[in-house]
Design a protein around this nucleic acid. Structure first.
Lengths: 346, 346
DNA sequence: TTAATATATGCAATCGATTGCTGATATTTT
DNA sequence: AAAATATCAGCAATCGATTGCATATATTAA
């Protein structure tokens, strides 16, 4: 079935040389005559030679490959991260092996093991939501593989990290809402064992404190991070005797969309009677009516940052790599769903 | 820096065995005693042994890896395809190496070469828009690597193909619009050297013919396949002395969105005065007001189909692989933007 | 007890590319 | 012309896992 591929031995034989010489010619070594090099290059092209990277990597002990583990490949944020990493690694002739954990801890462990088997040089991961034990990540480090965590990171593990400043972004978002005149702001919070959601909550609380607003427990809804859960939470919130006048959907834009749909359905005017702020700047937030205020995480840029961080650290061979965290400040995008003031003055 | 990884030789040494024996134990060969196997497995776990796939693959002559080349990783359709492939290949312990061509022919060629170097067993590709020469794809075949084209395929190349029945889907979409009472239907067409766009146009023409409607050339707009180009085309179309009463944005939902925004802006009521149908079922089409009628390509399912096609064909070792095309019928999703009749009866 | 079979292990080559070392020419210096 | 250096090619080991073949025990049959 499969045809035999040409190797350096084939080239060597044809030219009455040895494989070593061919290898040197192919690798721009100085220890070959220009004549031989030209001959080798010509013959290689003629025979349609393609270097077997498997052999090269086995010999060299690395794979020029970066493994990526994300909860879901087809989520905007993650596919942008991947695209960003790809752009940066492509230039350096690195390959990407991509796995998805489907938010399942067990699959995440399997992915990690596959990547270790593959001899990847670096593993980039955003952990799944249901994980609690991090032995598999320690294992990566034990195998001498560079580990870079991003977005959803395990704080306790001292690795390279690239994150968003979730607390600051949330503080800004909620401050903005308060300045727009909202005072009973509900929070849709995510699983608190993930630090990103903890930070977003902290930002929310900090904003309330900053403006001397009380924390109202019945306005804080746990684990509302899908459109459906966001909708469900909103139905409950809006039927309170003293309902909120705004919702900060810190979990995602999807939950914010759920809020918007239910609010519109029940007859709450957005932004006049209810302000809404999402998280992630999904494409659709610009299109809804009203458009949704949200927080852009610069995901593509974040991907490039991750890749570049790896290449930088790679060059520091002498000293053991120091844990290091790069924090990217997300950008609050103010749209109609929180623009109460501008509608008042109309 | 990098720690030495444990190999089968380390295990062998520790147990006073040879590597061959360890290898057999690890691979469930029958030619090892249960006692030794148990011992090997135990020791492997203790030493945190991870098999070096590079060596295995070099020896076995394949890599259990599938290479994917898509124009853009972070486009919904493609990231769903990838997710689908991933789900199917994960079960079979295959890895995915992913490249993006950025719609550039040159980068596509480079990606292909990288993948050939990597000794991938199969290359899955949806060609970039600006390609005209297909030598690099022939090269894949010459290297004995299975080639599977999907969605944007080169007809002339006899390979495995997984496509949508674009013509049928378009025929259905335009027929639906005609039945809703639209008669001057404009077409936003894509680059005609890509067969998918040719087919969509053919479906459009077939529908007009079926209902005895004339083909009006000024209503057919070339290369309008971004939101901006869709908007631009719409401005022109709606300023015609005899403007269209519907637009089939065969290029994408993004162009359909451009149409919707301009129409709303100018004051054309959708769907009463202007019907709109997009293509791809992007998430946002459900959210716009009015929601946009579109065509779902079952991208995730398509990804699974691609992977399964590979595994099926792989098992047929005796006979040379026959070119084969799997055509998936897309699904017309009727939403508000073309529901003229229902608004009339209101 | 001896012969015949089964079972388990070792040996050594292989996959393809790389590289330190040795050695043979070619070139330059004295 | 002899000695010193530079240039280029070959040899052989290496990376880690696999496997056909040979061989050494253990087990069973005669």
């Amino acid at each position: 079935m499969r045809k035999k591929r040409t190797t350096i031995y084939d080239i060597a034989e044809k030219l009455n040389l040895t494989a070593s010489c061919v290898s040197r010619a192919l690798n721009n070594s100085n220890y070959v005559s220009e004549k031989t090099r030209a001959l080798v290059l010509k013959t290689a092209a003629e025979l349609n030679y393609k270097r077997n990277i498997l052999a090269t990597n086995l010999r060299n002990g690395h794979s020029k490959t970066i493994g990526i583990v994300v909860p879901r490949i087809n989520q905007n944020f993650f596919s942008n991260i991947i695209a960003g990493i790809e752009e940066a690694t492509y230039e350096k002739d690195y390959n990407l092996v991509i796995c998805q954990s489907n938010e399942e801890h067990e699959k995440e462990v399997k992915c990690i093991n596959t990547l270790i088997n593959q001899q990847v040089d670096c593993i980039v991961i955003s952990i799944s939501a249901d994980g609690h034990d991090y032995q598999h990540l320690k294992n990566v480090i034990d195998h001498g593989i560079q580990l870079i965590q991003f977005d959803r990171v395990v704080d306790e593990l001292e690795t390279l990290k690239v994150i968003n400043d979730n607390e600051l972004a949330s503080l800004e978002a909620v401050s903005h809402m308060i300045e727009q005149g909202y005072s009973r702001i509900a929070l849709l919070e995510g699983p608190q064992h993930l630090s990103i959601f903890k930070q977003r909550k902290a930002g929310y609380l900090a904003a309330l404190k900053k403006y001397n607003l009380p924390v109202i427990n019945e306005l804080i809804v746990k684990n509302a991070w899908t459109k459906e859960l966001g909708a469900k939470a909103t139905r409950k919130l809006l039927s309170l005797s003293n309902p909120p006048d705004a919702v900060f959907a810190s979990t995602s834009d999807f939950s914010a969309l759920g809020v918007l749909e239910v609010a519109t359905d029940i007859g709450f005017k957005v932004p006049e009677q209810l302000g809404i702020c999402g998280y992630s700047n999904e494409a659709f937030t610009e299109i809804t009516s009203p458009s949704i205020t949200t927080i852009d995480q610069y995901s593509f840029f974040m991907g490039k940052t991750i890749a570049n961080l790896y290449f930088e650290e790679m060059n520091i061979k002498e000293i053991a790599i120091q844990p290091k965290t790069i924090s990217i400040k997300p950008n609050l995008i103010i749209r109609s769903s929180t623009s109460k003031k501008s509608t008042e003055t109309k």
